[in-house]
Amino acid sequence: MFVVAVILFVYFGATSPQFLTEFNIVTLVDFIAPVAVISFGEVMLLTLGEMDLSAGTIFIFMPFVTQALFSAGVPLLVAILITLVVGALIGVVNGLIVVVFGLPSFITTLGTLFALDGIMLVVTNANEATMPTTGTTVEKIFGLGRWSEILWALAMLIVMYLILHRSRMGLHITATGGNRTGAAEAGIPVKRVIVWAFVMSGVLATLVGIIDATRVGTIDPGDPGTTEMFYAMAAAVIGGTATTGGRGTQIGAVIGATVFGILYVGFTLKGINANAFVLILGIAILVAMAVNVQLSRVTQRRGGSKGRRSK
């Protein structure tokens, strides 16, 4: 997948002169960052054998919370922090429904997706809003600085990578996704691990939602955020995260998101119909999944020295 990204980058770089301009790279990065950050949460959940369909809606909805708090006189930084807590609580709700009622996360988060979208539409009366402008560094840090969004994405990549691959929590996530009974018998609090993963997904979507909204300036409740969610899920899967649990990679997801970004921006520059982008996305997911399944068969047969890594 990494090779595909490099080939595409070189191809568009060589064939369209505008591709390598700073403006275009920023555009590219702005496309990649939200998808990548939401996908980090999905990678955690997919590794557990779960998913979060509501992450895109959290991404769209949460900036309204920041905006409303700010309008009510709460300082911007405090408003952002409160919003992050709200995002975490949505994750807690998702996680608790899954572990307490034993509902599949597909159903649970499909429900919260619509519920959140509904709340957003009712509360905002389907009206757009403008993100707060205070002219302070808080905004610069949270989205207005030219490289703010990509720096946040990189920071989140490092943090989430360390959590999944270098911490006890990550090992417990992989263990729970790989063999839930076995993990429970080893004494891992599997339910708590699952709730935590939903919390991480909620916080990540909230954070990148605030940053993206601040950068764009206006927020629109007319979009339920499903596009971002599906891109994130696709980036995770194409990057080599197993939907069956037990294997996840955020670096793979970043590469997946980058491939989408390059295709999207490259197509636009070359004047190719944007609709073709969706077609390619669909084919890419199918091919990636087919390769993924074959790869895991091969690694299983061969003693799988590549265990948790993807190609």
Binding site: A175, G178, N179, T181, A183, I188, G307
Partner: peptide, 18 residues
């Protein structure tokens, strides 16, 4: 009986699980 090992984790991670 169902072996509490995690198939995807390395042997040493399994040995130290939890």
């Amino acid at each position: 009986q169902d072996l509490a090992l995690i198939p995807q984790l390395s042997i040493f991670h399994n040995l130290f699980l939890n």
